[in-house]
Nucleic acid binder design. Structure first.
Lengths: 222, 222
DNA sequence: ACAATAGTGTCTGTGAGACAGTATCGA
DNA sequence: TCGATACTGTCTCACAGACACTATTGT
């Protein structure tokens, strides 16, 4: 940076917006809140927090996730920073979007501190509808959905949507939901075989062949 | 966002840091400046500008690029936002990193408005050395270098580093520099073929077979 | 035995990688 | 003719896609 005499520049508010994704009933869901105040009173919005003056962006995201879900150690990553001038009709706010992934079994969003009215929203349904969404959050959600789909193809990000031990039919379903298309069992298994390792457990009680639990293999370097 | 009573939060300075990449003498280069003031006086840094209160992030990036290079219409994209508390030893500054790509033929960085001492730095050399770099800019450069390499593999981003009309040996060289490895002519051409179209021009004057100029094909949908 | 789902074997086509060959310029 | 670089043909191998087959549970 060349000019650091920032006195000539007004400072800005910086917020972190959170996209907490999970999969419930074989649908991709997003944790959203219904706003209790204007603007956009009673419309749904992404949860978010302002970034403190002595707080890292990642720390703010972590704090927000904790406040909304009660969870401390779930996967999250920074997505993109949105800086349109009129995103918020009242004041200038720069928003850094963070995406978090959590298996539904861990997500008891009622446990959050300020769960005024958090709900899990069906993402595809929401994006297909023209339901009103606060601020520029529809755009943010679209971007996150796109990014999530992309990353599934070349990373192991989907593992964060299942528990530590999972069956392959379950994991495959997660992939299918994120990719928006069905996959062949045999091919899917061949593809992820190098990334997983067997456990000694299998499902019980189903009226069909049980399926084995696997876990993610660590340290893929040899 | 739930709580919009921002009065309890201090506002922050937001800056845009610019990574203007080009290829000169078959080396990946980055436009950097030598700081004339403390902190980090006389050390190299990324150029950057503060984001105005009524200015979009993209607009700030565009303005910065214009000021540094004199160019108005080159490719750029947002990379990542860096928000460590002590990135700048004096004050809290959030920095949104933008990457720009420009063919060396267009880059006359002496034309910039505040070209106190802009220079093109060899990126690999810089990262291999332990030369002092201002702020957290080494980290930012590392990230950008990584991202650039990645995007070359699955996008046509490399085209922004050559002029509108280019020869395939030239374009291949650009790919090789970005990927850090040599490629086979035949394979490279097969891969690139669907994205380009012939022109009527060929190189002249070289003491060997001339090479044809191509341009990027538009509208790949049919 | 049957329904239902878990899991495997294998054929095919596509595309990356490797390499050898041919083409066309100036000197 | 020769050196140098542009350009092409083709073999191989790994891997994704497609599909048929076998395996194991509860009822």
């Amino acid at each position: 940076m060349e000019e650091y005499d920032s006195s000539q520049y007004e400072k800005l508010s910086v917020a972190v917006d959170l996209l907490v994704f999970t999969i419930e009933n074989d649908r991709l869901k997003l944790l959203m809140i219904k706003r209790s105040e204007n603007p956009f009173k009673n419309t749904i919005a992404l949860p978010g927090v302002f970034v403190g003056i002595k707080e890292t962006l990642d720390a703010a995201a972590k704090r927000g996730i904790k406040e909304e879900t009660g969870l401390k150690n779930i996967y999250f990553e920074q997505l993109y920073t949105f800086g349109e001038v009129k995103r918020d009709p009242r004041m200038r706010i720069i928003s850094v979007a963070y995406m978090a992934l959590v298996p539904i079994e861990k997500l008891d969003y009622k446990a959050g501190e300020r769960t005024i009215s958090a709900e899990l929203v069906d993402v595809e349904e929401l994006l297909a509808s023209n339901k009103k969404i606060a601020f520029d959050h529809r755009e943010i959600i679209k971007y996150a959905r796109w990014r999530l789909k992309n990353k599934v193809e070349y990373t192991d990000i989907a593992f964060h949507l299942v528990e530590e031990e999972f069956t392959l039919p379950r994991l495959q379903k997660v992939y299918e939901i994120l990719l928006g298309k069905e996959l062949y069992k045999a091919n899917f298994r061949k593809k992820i075989a190098p990334m997983i390792e067997e456990t000694d457990y299998i499902t019980v009680g189903d009226a069909h062949r049980p399926s084995r639990f696997y876990r993610k293999k660590q340290a893929d370097d040899e």
